[in-house]
Each structure stands twice: as structure tokens, then as C-alpha cells.
Design a protein around this nucleic acid. Structure first.
Lengths: 182, 182
DNA sequence: AACAATACGGAGACTGTCTCCGTTTAGCAA
DNA sequence: TTGCTAAACGGAGACAGTCTCCGTATTGTT
């Protein structure tokens, strides 16, 4: 990639990260181009679809996911506490910007989504936690990790769309945790 | 209301019902106006916001909700079966058109939503089922009916957005049911 | 310095939302 | 029936967002 192209690419991603966080995933792309000081053509050449841009923005997010998972797995306390703590981290991770929970959760099962690979990092992070609990014999039979992603993703989605705060989300996560644990 | 206005109103609602079901909640309103044989101005006078139109379309849905609830409450079998059966009906009711689950679930807590009243019919229908189970002593402590709506609404939302079928939804509903029941 | 190759960016096509306002019509009263 | 007025109509067009095309400008290589 030519030096000027790289420069523009980086600026667009940086601006997009900020704008997505502030205005949500539906922010105008022409606006982002303008804020980055490039024409819309440039933005659309680098990122033909909105999701390609989101994908680039998410690169750093991926690192955060594994880091957070490692920390969650060292959690001291009961299995229930471990699971609940992980659920809260999970919700936090996918709720970084408005519209995120729905986007990420539905991308997990969509092979055509440009952010699919990113989301699968999250799915396998969740898998690590679930497998750890399964080895402890803490889970009911028949629990699939993808279902767990969808359940918690669903809660995060409604919380996102209804502007619920953590205190309203917590009891819902407890219900799901209790439904999963023996 | 003048006779011609009533006529147009009815035609718009009828067309909208069909189009929303076929193309989802995001269908173009100008298209709906055209299909109904009226100008966009007419549509927007009757229904200033998209949700006002949805509200009108939902009138008949409200009847269906209470009817379905009555039937669910007569269900023979265990409490778990009753609850699971109700959950499936609930998902069916809010998944009539694409985008419905998210719309309805988030409208429940939004006093400014024109469809709020309609959604509260659903919320109180759910309340009837939950109270019935509470009287039986079947529920854990601290279960709030609005949480149940959000939990099941969340599952329906991800199912809607990921095109999941009933066999994928069922186990998630079971997790929630198990988390709610003693 | 010249010249490909690469990248830029803005004009504008296209789509959907929504409003304004001149025209038409329903319904009533004489 | 006719005439009148309030109500309703509907389409032109303003506005916003998405995305493309293509003439222009920049890069980096020979």
C-alpha cells in the first residue's frame, strides 16, 4: 500500500472508532470521511461495505477479548460467581457502541459477515469459560456454547435497545446462569 | 372522519400489514403509499411516524395476544411445560414480521413509543402466566415479569436476526425456564 | 525528470423520508 | 340542486444518506 493510502486508511479507522462510539453504528459514513479529511470515494474504496470499516475498527477489540477472558478465568469464588462475572464482562465487551450487541451476536452465525472472524474470537473465548465449567461438572447436560453466546447476546441486545443499566441486566444474567448450572 | 379519509386509512393499514410481513419493518413508506393508491402526503398525515402506522397494523394482533394467553393458561401438564409452551407462543406472537421482536421488546419500556400501549397488553398477558406460576409456588424468589419479557424478547430478537428456527430456539427457552423455576 | 501505477475526492445518481401547499372532494345547508 | 366550506388529497421537491464514476493529483521507480 502506498504511503498516502496507508495514512488515509489509518485516519479513517481512528475517526470511525470515535464516531461509532459516540453516535452508534448507524453514523453517516460521508460524515466520517469528512471528519477524516478525505472524500467519500476514498472511504468507500478502502471499505466497500459499512461492515468492512467496523471490522477494521474492531482489530484492537479482539486483543481486549482474550485479555478479559484470561482474567475472568482466574476469578476466585464459586462456579456461579465465575460464570456471572464472565457474563458481565461479555456484555461489556459487546456493548462498546450502540447497536454492537445485535451486530456481533447475529454475525456469529453469518458466514457472509466481514466481522464473522472477529466474532468467533469472542465465541471461542466464551467456549473456554464454558469448557472450564463443564470440566468441573458444574453444567447441566446439553449446554452448547453458541447457545450461551446467543442468550447473553440477547440480553445485551435488549439492554442496549432499552437503555438498561447494569442493575437491570444483572438479574437477567442470573436467570440464565441458574438455568445453565446444575 | 370523512368517508374518503376513512377509506384511505383502511387501505393504507391493510397494505402496510401485508408489506411489513413480506419485507419487514423497514419497508419504504412511500412504496406502501403507492401500493395503497394514495400520495405520500396522505400516508404521513394519517401516520406522522412510522410507528404510528405499525400501531394501527397491530390492532388485530392485540386480540390474538389475549386469546393465545387464555389458551396457554389452560395447558395441561407440569409447570415447566406450561411455561415453555407459553414462551414459544410468546416468541411466535412477537415474531410476526422481521424486526418485530426488537421493536416490541424495546417499546415496552419506552413511554414515548406509539406502540407502547400495545406492548403492555403483551406484558400483562405475560404477567398473568407468571402470577399463575407464582401462586403455585413454582417460581424462584425475585422474579419480575418485565425481566421475563426481556429475556424471552432477547431470545426472539437474536433468533429473528440470525434466522434461527424453532429447534434452535427451544433449548434457549429451556435455559431461561429452568433459571426461573424452583 | 519523466512516467506508469496508484490513490484521491467531489460531483452526482439513486433511494428513502417527510413537508408544503395548490387542488379536489365530501357533506351540509339553503 | 346548487353553492359553500372545512377536510382531505397528492405530488413536487427539500433533505439526508449511500455509493460510484472518472478526471485529477500524488507516489515512487527508472
Amino acid at each position: 500500500m502506498r504511503a498516502d493510502a496507508q495514512r488515509n486508511y489509518d485516519r479513517i479507522v481512528e475517526v470511525a472508532r470515535q464516531v461509532f462510539r459516540e453516535r452508534g453504528y448507524d453514523a453517516s459514513l460521508d460524515d466520517i470521511a469528512k471528519l477524516a479529511g478525505v472524500g467519500p470515494g476514498t472511504l468507500y474504496r478502502h471499505f466497500p461495505k459499512r461492515e468492512n470499516l467496523l471490522d477494521a475498527v474492531m482489530q484492537s477489540w479482539v486483543d481486549k477479548v482474550t485479555e478479559t477472558t484470561d482474567k475472568a478465568l482466574t476469578h476466585e469464588g464459586s462456579d456461579r460467581d465465575l460464570l456471572l462475572n464472565w457474563f458481565q464482562e461479555y456484555v461489556g465487551l459487546i456493548s462498546q457502541h450502540k447497536g454492537g450487541p445485535a451486530k456481533i451476536t447475529s454475525a456469529m452465525g453469518d458466514p457472509d459477515s466481514p466481522i464473522m472472524t472477529k466474532c468467533q474470537v469472542l465465541a471461542s473465548a466464551n467456549g473456554r469459560v464454558i469448557e472450564r465449567l463443564r470440566e468441573d461438572g458444574a453444567l447441566r447436560d446439553g449446554v452448547e456454547t453458541i447457545q450461551v453466546c446467543r442468550l447473553v447476546g440477547g440480553i445485551a441486545t435488549v439492554a442496549d435497545q432499552s437503555d438498561l443499566d447494569a442493575s437491570a441486566v444483572r438479574p437477567m444474567l442470573e436467570v440464565v446462569a441458574d438455568g445453565l448450572l446444575r
